[in-house]
C-alpha cells in the first residue's frame, strides 16, 4: 500500500470570540495585530483526518500550508507538534487585503509549486469569515474535484478515497478519485493533542525571518538539522500574476463598514418575582401569543 502526500491548508485566525474595539482598520479590513490568534478550529479537524491516514499508511507525509503574516508560523509549528512533517508559510505584503478568491489563487500557486500531492485537506470554513469558499475555489483553480462537509475518511487506497459527508439533514458516502481536495467539518473527530516527542524535536523550528532575532550560536542548529527550517515563500517564490493578488486583485470590495447600532425598544423591565412573572404570562395568554 502506498504512502500519501498530504497538504493541509490551515489558517491562523483572530479569535472572534474576543474582539476589542481596535479590531478593524480604517479601510474596513481586519487589524489582525490587535487580536489573539488561534489555529482555525476546523483546520484542526482537517489535520486529524490527515494524521489518521498517516497512522494507517507509514511513510505518508503531511505539509501544513498557510498564508498570513510572519506570526502565522505558529500554526505550522503547532501542526508539527501534533504530527505534521513540515510546513510552508506564504507571506508577503502583496497578499494583504485579499478576498477569498485572491487568497485561493495565491494558495493554489503555492500548491502548484509544492507539485506532488495526493490529498489536499482543509477545514470547511474559518471562524473569522465563515464563508467556506477558499477550499472549493482552490480545488477549481487546480482543476481537481472536491468533497466538502467531510466528517470522516472511511478508506483510502492508491486510486480512490471514500468518506462520509455530514449535510444539514443527513449523510452521504462518496467515493472520489485521487488527487482530491477535502473540506472537513467541525463534527469530525477533534485533533489529537501535541506529542511530547515532536514538541522537543520541533521546538526550534523557525522561518528565516524568525531566525534573524536569534543569536549566532543558534545558527549552526539550522545547518545541522534542516527540518527546523520552515520555508517562507514571498510573492517572488511562486509563479503568480500579481494583478490577481491582494486588495486590488480581489473582485469583492468593502464599500462600507457600519458599527452595530442597536435601535433600543422600550423594553418592559420585569423582576423575577412570582407576581410579575404571573402577570406577564397572563398578558401573553390573553393576547393569544401563547395558548
Amino acid at each position: 500500500m502506498k504512502a500519501f502526500k498530504i497538504i493541509v491548508l490551515a489558517k491562523q485566525v483572530p479569535d472572534t470570540r474576543n474582539v476589542g474595539k481596535d479590531a478593524m482598520k480604517a479601510d474596513g479590513t481586519v487589524n489582525r495585530a490587535a487580536l489573539p490568534a488561534i489555529f482555525n478550529p476546523e483546520d484542526l479537524n482537517a489535520l486529524e483526518q490527515a494524521l489518521r491516514i498517516k497512522d494507517q499508511f507509514p511513510g505518508t507525509t503531511i505539509t501544513i500550508l498557510t498564508m498570513g503574516p510572519g506570526r502565522a508560523a505558529d500554526i505550522i509549528r503547532e501542526g508539527m507538534f501534533r504530527g505534521a512533517d513540515d510546513g510552508v508559510l506564504l507571506t508577503d505584503r502583496a497578499f494583504a487585503g485579499s478576498d477569498t478568491l485572491a487568497t485561493s489563487y495565491a494558495i493554489s500557486r503555492a500548491i502548484a509549486k509544492i507539485k506532488e500531492y495526493d490529498l489536499i485537506i482543509c477545514g470547511r470554513q474559518a471562524i473569522d469569515g465563515d464563508t467556506a469558499q477558499v477550499g472549493p475555489q482552490v480545488a477549481e483553480k487546480l482543476n481537481m474535484p472536491q468533497v466538502t462537509y467531510v466528517e470522516e475518511i472511511i478508506q483510502a487506497d492508491n486510486k480512490s478515497i471514500q468518506m462520509k459527508r455530514r449535510l444539514d439533514n443527513g449523510v452521504e458516502i462518496v467515493k472520489a478519485p485521487i488527487p482530491v481536495l477535502l473540506t472537513v467539518t467541525s463534527s469530525a473527530s477533534a485533533c489529537r493533542a501535541r506529542n511530547a516527542k515532536f514538541l522537543m524535536k520541533y521546538k526550534h523550528a523557525k522561518t528565516i525571518s524568525e531566525r534573524q532575532s536569534e543569536n549566532e550560536d543558534y545558527m549552526s542548529l539550522y545547518h545541522d538539522r534542516p527540518y527546523l527550517n520552515i520555508p517562507e515563500w514571498s510573492v517572488n517564490d511562486v509563479e503568480v500574476d500579481p494583478q490577481q493578488l491582494g486588495l486590488s486583485g480581489s473582485p469583492t470590495k468593502v464599500k462600507k463598514i457600519d458599527n452595530v447600532v442597536l435601535q433600543a425598544k422600550e423594553a418592559k423591565k420585569i423582576d423575577a418575582s412570582d407576581a410579575e412573572i404571573n402577570l406577564l404570562m397572563k398578558e401573553l395568554i390573553d393576547s393569544h401569543t401563547i395558548g
Partner: peptide, 8 residues
C-alpha cells in the same frame, strides 16, 4: 467579524 460590524 464576530458580529461587531455590518459590512456592505
Amino acid at each position: 467579524f464576530g458580529g461587531n460590524i455590518i459590512a456592505t
